[in-house]
Design a protein around this nucleic acid. Structure first.
Lengths: 182, 182
DNA sequence: GTCTATAGATAGATAGAC
DNA sequence: GTCTATCTATCTATAGAC
């Protein structure tokens, strides 16, 4: 079982990581997977078909990464772990690509919603462990903040991006965990 | 003075608003500006040249919009104003396009940095009016949070996006303004 | 200086060979 | 079922007409 589809999906994710949404083309993905563009369309007839399959796999990867990050016990280490991911530009390109795809291709919208909900529910679960009064809105704040930090870092490319992000995240996390219940 | 360049820049911004970075092509911009693609390259020889000029104008517009938003006096009205902008997908597409361009085209990076710094300094000034102890890191948090909320709303397209964003922003703003000084 | 015709490259999709 | 040759559309850039 030399699953061609598996190679194609991996090549697609790698392409997204390197070139983002605008660089996600059938020729690039095909050559990286070691086959011709016209052969690629046998497995995934249209560009959107390919994008859906790659997006689905990318989302699984993202959720697994979130799980790994939220395994950390203390707020300090979680802030550091999120910051590390936020300045990994390959990851940010994938997220932005999924966001753009969701905006432009209806089939991708449901997929992105699944990703966002998955992250928020995991974040909510994590926050409740530190403060039972933490709300889902707190989790959404943490999610949006992480996304925003990643996007800004991608575009500015500052040297000290990781430490900046870490202190901002820690400040937000400690505020949430210290707030008194309702 | 029927400045062709002005028309082209406006058409470029409109194209960015509608189609984002991946849809920003010379033919689309040219036809919207009422001239041929080969004519457009007389004014802006390459795609990046055009992108720089359009990006510069877009940034001015963004900063003006930020000024308008931060003119609000109370935290409630500012939270509402930011939320309103965050769910305006045309604006988000422009921001994401600038971020992607900054990632991929070096000439655009400096431009995005100017935008980010401009927003952060304005936000910092605003926050200090409500709490003298507000730091630049607080302003960066507000900026990243706003960007993240906009990106997530673009991709999920929820009906209640604006009210969700508003309450999250208000929560962050009131935390910052209530925190005691160092 | 202003504008256009055209070349050269790349993307996406399809019909059909094996 | 696998794979390729090929067509069409679109994009960017340049040489040159007026």
């Amino acid at each position: 079982m030399q699953d061609r589809r598996h190679d194609i999906i991996q090549a697609g994710i790698a392409t997204l990581r390197e070139h983002g949404y605008s660089g996600f083309t059938q020729p690039k993905v095909a050559s990286r997977a070691g086959l011709r563009q016209s052969h690629l369309t046998y497995y995934y007839p249209t560009r959107v078909d390919l994008l859906v399959a790659v997006g689905r796999a990318a989302i699984e990867g993202q959720l697994a990464a979130v799980d790994a990050v939220l395994t950390q016990a203390s707020l300090e280490t979680v802030a550091a772990a999120i910051a590390k991911v936020a300045v990994r530009h390959e990851t940010t390109r994938v997220i932005m690509a999924l966001a753009q795809a969701a905006d432009q291709e209806p089939p991708l919208r449901a997929l992105f919603l699944e990703l966002a909900d998955g992250i928020v529910s995991r974040a909510h679960f994590f926050l409740k462990a530190h403060n039972p009064a933490a709300t889902e809105a707190d989790a959404r704040l943490l999610h949006a903040l992480s996304v925003g930090l990643a996007v800004v870092d991608l575009a500015t490319g500052r040297e000290d991006g990781e430490s900046r992000a870490e202190s901002i995240l820690y400040s937000a996390l400690s505020t949430i965990s210290q707030r008194s219940g309702p």
